[in-house]
């Protein structure tokens, strides 16, 4: 339910199994390595983030849009719908669900055009944002169908705030952990683990980064599956490791070219 994670569609339908996830990606992983696949998602998560910021959406809305995006491709190949179309569609749908207020169609398209031109020219070159409102609206129906109308997404932000309150308000810790939660959207953890576990993992990483030894007893007292927390921590750390040796600006064009793409109707 909307207030209860355990009865929500998020928990009941969208806590995916890692093995299933890997199996469903076989089509894409025939053409891309695991790392390339992750880099492509990282890139489109950036597009969603920048679009959301340009549209002045809250992080909660941006996170929901990112999870829609990941859920769609968890069940479908990248070739099914061009991710450059699905990304803004996710933002559009999430903004309505989270009641930010409807973004006007023209504002959405204009923002896409500006963002692609000004912030992602390293990926798209001179290519303009190719889609119009009718594309987004058509895509939105497909997105909603593929999400099985599960639109309420639980995010780690609220549990994070509660945990930090419990620890004793620590703004630096919260800021770090909050950013780590944002970064976690670039990994698969939002498909695999409940949001409160992601929040704990983010806190854990933040504590290590800040050298906060004194919080060990707090973690020890938590009644959680520490193996799961470790798995999440590892996934996020892996992302940071990947970033160290990765220059998106140089590599993304080749990756996008390699990405499986939609095929048009056969010509008769």
């Amino acid at each position: 339910m909307a207030g209860n994670f355990w009865q929500s569609s998020h928990h009941q339908q969208w806590m995916l199994d890692k093995q299933d996830l890997i199996r469903d990606r076989q089509h894409d992983l025939a053409k891309l390595t695991d790392e390339e696949y992750q880099k492509i998602f990282n890139f489109f998560a950036s597009i969603i983030q920048v679009l959301g910021e340009q549209l002045k959406l809250r992080q909660q809305v941006i996170a929901t849009a990112t999870v829609y995006f990941k859920r769609f491709y968890a069940r479908n190949s990248l070739k099914c719908i061009d991710p450059l179309l699905l990304a803004p569609t996710c933002v559009f749908l999430a903004s309505k669900v989270e009641e930010f207020g409807v973004i006007s169609n023209s504002r959405l398209i204009t923002t896409c055009q500006t963002v692609i031109k000004n912030k992602f020219s390293y990926a798209f070159g001179q290519q303009e944002f190719p889609y119009r409102t009718n594309h987004i609206l058509e895509c939105e129906f497909y997105l909603l169908e593929n999400l099985d109308c599960c639109l309420i997404v639980f995010q780690p932000y609220r549990p994070l705030l509660l945990f930090v309150q419990d620890i004793g308000q620590d703004d630096q810790l919260l800021t770090y952990a909050w950013r780590i939660v944002n970064d976690s959207l670039r990994t698969d953890v939002s498909l695999l683990y409940p949001p409160y576990q992601i929040a704990i993992a983010a806190l854990h990483i933040a504590c290590v980064m800040l050298g906060k030894e004194n919080l060990k007893p707090w973690f020890a007292e938590l009644n959680v599956d520490l193996d799961k927390i470790q798995e999440i921590v590892r996934a996020i750390i892996n992302l940071y490791e990947m970033w160290k040796s990765y220059d998106e600006k140089k590599e993304i064009q080749a990756l996008l070219a390699k990405m499986p793409k939609p095929c048009p109707a056969p010509q008769r």
Binding site: S77, I81, L85, P130, C139, P264
Partner: peptide, 22 residues
């Protein structure tokens, strides 16, 4: 299909097979 993709102004937004199946 790939040729078609490379044309700048005419992207294929949705895979035909996916569309038909859905």
């Amino acid at each position: 299909g790939d040729n078609y993709q490379n044309k700048i102004m005419a992207p294929v937004m949705m895979d035909y097979e996916f569309k038909m199946k859905t």
